[in-house]
């Protein structure tokens, strides 16, 4: 992994208290980290940086996470990118919708960072 190009991870959340630990965690695991505080920033970052993994909150002040995910799935340059929702919305309908718009994984908040790392690694193994 270290010899290859660094994996790019985009972390999207409007809560600074969540962004901060996740940013630290990704860097710690040797990823190239990008941060977005709302949906608009997230889409700009997607178009510009073309991350391999997107950690995506759903409830944000402007464009919501579902919309961002749709955007990712519609851009050709993002083929093969992994999208992981992390949301305080825990109803079955919300989770179902997450997978419908094209998520690879939906993790309800609060979650364990260890579990998150495991899943990221699983998804990016190939």
């Amino acid at each position: 992994m270290s010899t290859k190009v660094k994996l790019k991870v985009l972390v999207v959340d409007d809560e600074p208290g969540i962004l901060m630990p996740l940013e630290f965690l990704m860097r710690k695991n040797g990823y190239q980290v990008y941060i977005a505080r709302n949906g608009t920033e997230a889409m700009e970052s997607v178009d510009k940086e073309r991350p391999n993994v997107v950690l995506l909150d759903i409830m944000m002040p402007d464009v919501d996470g579902y919309e961002v995910c749709r955007h990712i799935r519609q851009s050709e340059s993002m083929d093969g990118a992994k999208v992981i929702f992390m949301s305080a919305k825990t109803k079955d309908a919300d989770i179902k919708k997450g997978y419908e718009v094209g998520a690879d994984l939906y993790i309800p908040k609060p979650f364990s960072t260890r579990f998150l790392m495991e899943k990221i690694k699983e998804l990016t193994k190939s």
């Binding site: 996740l22 630290f24 965690l25 825990t90 908040k109 960072t113």
Partner: peptide, 19 residues
């Protein structure tokens, strides 16, 4: 739902500190 947000933050921060 409102409780989940600060809890997420607290749990993530503590786990990282611990690890």
């Amino acid at each position: 739902h409102e409780l989940r947000t600060p809890l997420t933050s607290i749990r993530a921060l503590s786990e990282i500190l611990y690890d």
